[in-house]
Design a protein around this nucleic acid. Structure first.
Length: 419
RNA sequence: CGGGGUGUAGUGUAACGGCUAACAUGUCUGUUUUGGGAACAGAUGACUCCGGGUUCGAAUCCCGGCACCCCGACCA
């Protein structure tokens, strides 16, 4: 991608009404654009990141049997009344259409999917079944805040599982935990898997996937040995208390919740009449589970956790590009032509090797400005080609986040980047 | 929803109740420059959030609204 043609407008200064780190860097880097409180556009650069996160999730959920579908955001009031949530859910966007019919904008999709299931599933032979979607959710938060961390409109992956028995559901729950761990690892996030309240759904605990960071809004108490981890809302234990399992001292940390998995049991299937016939011809409610991941929130969380004073440091798998190729103009025209030619050639070779590259081909921008932009964008590898490097028949490669750059032979970089 | 704060060119800031609302940055045109946000010259860009009021006179004071941010509550 040629940077001169690409829609990236970086900003030197952050807007004063955004305080959170993720909003500041994502806005300054031209990843997102704020439309109103808790509502953002994803600009081309930011969308690349979002899509990468999406694809990681898609791959891992497919790997545990998930089948992707897409449900409507626009939903009828009647469906929500079946589960009492039309009145109960405070964050539900409700509005009337031209014919004065009440509609909702989906904050979650248990109702819609349970409706689909009751219309289509009747037999134990169709179970288990795992359906998921990646879709924009709408929640009327009284206080949207912290950039992408708590929006009123945000991208989420929601997976729902349907089972014959509670036992089968529990097995799948464990599978989901494993898949989730993989997903977050690939996104470059270390997560704590914390027990939390089952909410309105269940007396059983749910599990939250929590990223540690001082800017988090949740509080998790955990054991450094890894055998205790709970959201503070369900425990009285605090920092310094002894771990009930190993007696080590517990630690309090602030966290951002990036995923949460719930036991639904038969709450929705009973309320909405989603039943199946078992082997003995007995009619039973379908046993359900649900599993969410905040995709846009992951993007924000990564920025919160992974940055320095100059900008974001994207983990490789979700970076908008793998390499940032920069050429620096030389004084002498002939030399400059040589620098440009070498850079162009390198650019083509990277493209041929399917290595995603953003080529800063802008000519009227100073070297310093290019470097500053590069640090702000946070692309994992920066390759600089200039008069200096060519004199040594080399190019410079630097990993974002590391201070020192290395001079390597041009051919070397392809080998290095292939890893 | 309770509490607090802030609204002035795209962005960041300034302006005693009183001249044509200033400076920086960005953007555009030229010249020059290119290893850490270069220099000069010129240009562009604001119904000072909206509505009312006080006043000879309001960006500035008062009232109402709206928007945004922060703390708390809330968070399938």
């Amino acid at each position: 991608m040629l940077q001169s043609k690409y829609f990236i407008k970086t900003k030197k200064e952050a807007s004063s009404d955004e305080v959170s780190v993720n909003a500041q860097f994502l806005t300054r880097g031209g990843f997102i654009d704020k439309e109103m409180a808790g509502v953002y556009s994803f600009l081309p650069l930011g969308l690349r990141v979002l899509r990468k996160i999406e694809n990681i999730i898609r791959e891992e959920i497919n790997a545990i049997g998930g089948q992707e579908l897409l449900m409507p955001a626009l939903q009828p009031r009647e469906l929500w009344e079946e589960t009492q949530r039309w009145e109960e859910m405070d964050v539900l966007y409700r509005f009337q259409d031209q014919q004065k019919k009440w509609l909702a904008l989906g904050p979650t999709h248990e109702e819609v999917l349970t409706d689909i299931i009751r219309k289509n599933i009747n037999s134990y032979k169709d179970l288990p079944l795992y359906l998921f979607q990646i879709q924009t959710k709408f929640r009327d938060e009284l206080r949207a805040k912290a950039g992408l961390l708590r929006g009123r409109e945000f991208l989420m992956k929601d997976l729902y599982s349907f089972h014959e028995s509670e036992e089968d559901r529990k097995n799948y729950y464990q599978k989901a935990i494993k898949a989730y761990k993989k997903i977050f690892k690939r996104c470059g996030l270390d997560v704590l898997v914390a027990e939390a309240s089952g909410g309105a759904f269940s007396k059983e605990f749910s599990h939250e996937f929590q990223v540690q960071t001082p800017s988090g809004e949740d509080l998790v108490v955990f054991c450094p040995n890894g055998d205790f981890s709970k959201n503070k809302e369900i425990t009285d234990l605090r920092e310094g208390a002894k771990c009930p399992n190993c007696l080590a001292h517990l630690i309090d940390v602030k966290t951002i919740e990036v995923g949460n998995i719930f036991t639904l049991g038969t709450k929705f299937s009973e309320a909405m009449g989603a039943n199946f016939l078992d082997k003995n011809g007995q009619k039973k409610p379908i046993v359900m589970g649900c599993y969410g991941i905040g995709i846009s929130r992951i993007m924000g969380a990564v920025a919160e956790v992974n940055h320095d004073e100059r900008g974001i440091i994207w983990p490789e798998e979700i970076a908008p590009f793998k390499t940032h190729l920069i050429s620096i103009t030389a004084k002498d025209k002939k030399t400059d032509q040589k620098v440009k030619n070498t850079t162009k050639k390198t650019y083509k070779e990277l493209l041929d090797l399917d290595i995603e590259v953003l080529y800063d081909d802008r000519t009227e921008i100073s070297a310093g400005a290019k470097f500053a932009d590069s640090d702000l964008l946070g692309i994992p590898f920066r390759i600089v080609i200039s008069e200096k490097t060519l004199a040594k028949n080399s190019v410079e490669i630097r990993k974002r986040g590391e201070e020192k750059a290395k001079l390597v032979k041009i051919k070397e970089i392809f080998r290095k980047l292939k890893i």
